[in-house]
Write a protein that binds this DNA or RNA. Structure first.
Lengths: 148, 148
DNA sequence: ATGCATCCTCTAGCCACTAGAGGAGCAAGG
DNA sequence: CCTTGCTCCTCTAGTGGCTAGAGGATGCAT
């Protein structure tokens, strides 16, 4: 039951992943180099659909490309023990929980700011005041700027 | 009550912002170009500490550099009306809430995966299975890959 | 034959930093 | 005075995960 071969555009529509992204995944080695037509156009089969769906889903769950690479290595070799997959999922879960708790703290602070509001000159603005003065907020010192 | 002039290193320690980041903020115009010593070393005063703290705090709250630029323009001109600040804060709050709800959905899915676990070959791994099969999860189609 | 969609490669851009090379200056101990 | 080691300078390039655009070739329908 092999389905008809797919162009990159059809693969993109099927999986809802953009064409340049598919080429990018190929470039970084998440997707294997596909067969080509005489005129160098990429031709995909079922396996590519499955693999790309896997990648997409894992990305949606926040797995990094490196983590996905590891997970794909496991799927490529189903006899390997899969503690690694367990570990990766647990790690990812921990990261998500961490992010949620950070964001919840931020939400509280933003809610305070928005509730205070201000309706005049920027000089008396509560929002700006709140931003200037971080003494009354405690969303942790080591709040890594990059990845909130 | 002007405090002593600060080197970039002291400013970095005081505000807990890395030196290259300070130079970067100067480059993109969030911080003004400071005075220099004869040997071209940057010299900062109190105002820089306040401005950099403001920037840092806003970044921690997830404001983009562009939003911060707008907020700084308000602080620089306290007679301007500050609906803009209100709007920026509200927008930021909405974004944070959006992220929280996405992450909460992801957490649920990851929790399911981790709870199912697997203890053998990757071939029977529930984690990998869950990633391969997105039929049983519903964290929304338009889950923008970039910004979960 | 024409026209438009799709595909190709290649390069550069996005955000908010971060890291490193290669060099100059400054302060303190011997 | 000299050396050692820290701090600073500029500049370029790298990170992650794409996304956009140039400039050209091909495929398909009319």
């Amino acid at each position: 039951m092999q389905s008809a071969p797919l162009s990159i555009g059809k693969l993109a529509r099927l999986t809802d992943v953009k064409i340049p992204t598919i080429r990018f995944y190929e470039q970084i080695g998440l997707l294997p180099e596909p067969d080509r037509t005489e005129s160098e156009r990429r031709v995909y089969g079922d396996a590519a659909v499955r693999r790309l769906s896997f990648i997409k889903h894992a990305r949606q769950l926040g797995f990094s490309v490196e983590a996905i690479r590891a997970l794909l290595a496991l799927t490529d070799d189903p006899d390997r023990p899969c503690e690694e997959a367990n570990a990766l999922a647990a790690e990812q879960l921990a990261e998500v929980e961490e992010k949620i708790s950070r964001l919840t703290a931020l939400r509280a602070e933003l809610q305070r700011m928005v509730a205070a509001g201000c309706h005049g000159r920027a000089g008396d603005c509560r929002v700006i005041e709140a931003l200037s003065d971080d003494s009354q907020c405690e969303h942790g010192r080591p709040l890594n700027l990059a990845e909130v």
